[in-house]
């Protein structure tokens, strides 16, 4: 299977970027006079590390808005397959082929696992959808899926042992099983 790629122009380097923190030598006299700068991650003084952790937490909170995902045929789906990466791509083919057979299944493919698109998934759960997580491991993302939908639904799990690359056909039976389960 070959994937399309979208080329993009590399960003230009801004020579003034980081003017507030970059290390280029600290002038001790004249117009540019400033204290020496230290870029570090070691904070041993009392309270210093807690302060750093608070800053980091604010950063993690801020990047929650970067959570990204793709949905496919979820609008009237009864069962939403959740899968990411190459398995997400293969699951999409399985969903497409089941749709052609009239089965009400859809796909939710997280593009970012961290931050995890939990709000979008919860919204689908609120709408009454059921979930099947398919993974190329023995169950890792399923924990995030279950946490995201926990107030409204649960998720079934189908695992493919890493080392074998499955085909879309391999997913049809487990998807139909989950769809038939009430």
């Amino acid at each position: 299977m070959k994937e399309p790629i979208t080329p993009r122009e590399p960003k230009k380097v801004d020579p003034e970027e980081g003017a507030g923190w970059r290390l280029i030598g600290a002038p001790s006299t004249g117009k540019g006079k400033r204290d020496h700068r230290i870029i570090k991650s070691l904070f041993l003084m009392d309270g210093e590390l807690a302060g750093q952790n608070k800053k980091l937490q604010a950063k993690y909170d801020a990047w929650k808005k970067l959570a990204d995902f793709e949905t496919y045929e979820v609008k009237d789906a009864e069962l939403v397959v959740v899968a990411f990466g190459s398995i997400g791509r293969i699951a999409k083919n399985a969903v497409r082929s089941l749709r052609a057979k009239g089965k009400k299944v859809g796909l939710f493919r997280p593009k970012t696992l961290y931050p995890f698109p939990e709000k979008a998934l919860e919204k689908l759960a609120k709408e009454g959808k059921r979930f099947l997580t398919i993974e190329h491991n023995l169950g890792q993302m399923v924990e995030d899926v279950r946490l995201s939908v926990r107030k409204h639904a649960d998720s079934d799990l189908f695992c493919v042992y890493p080392g074998n690359m499955p085909s879309p056909d391999d997913f049809e039976a487990p998807i139909l099983r989950a769809l038939g389960r009430k």
Partner: peptide
Amino acid sequence: ENTVAVCSIGCSVFLYNYIDVDSVE
């Protein structure tokens, strides 16, 4: 005014607290 010090891990990492030049850990 033209120096960047690179401090490594160990007791000596705190060089940057004692030397008045731009430093990175």
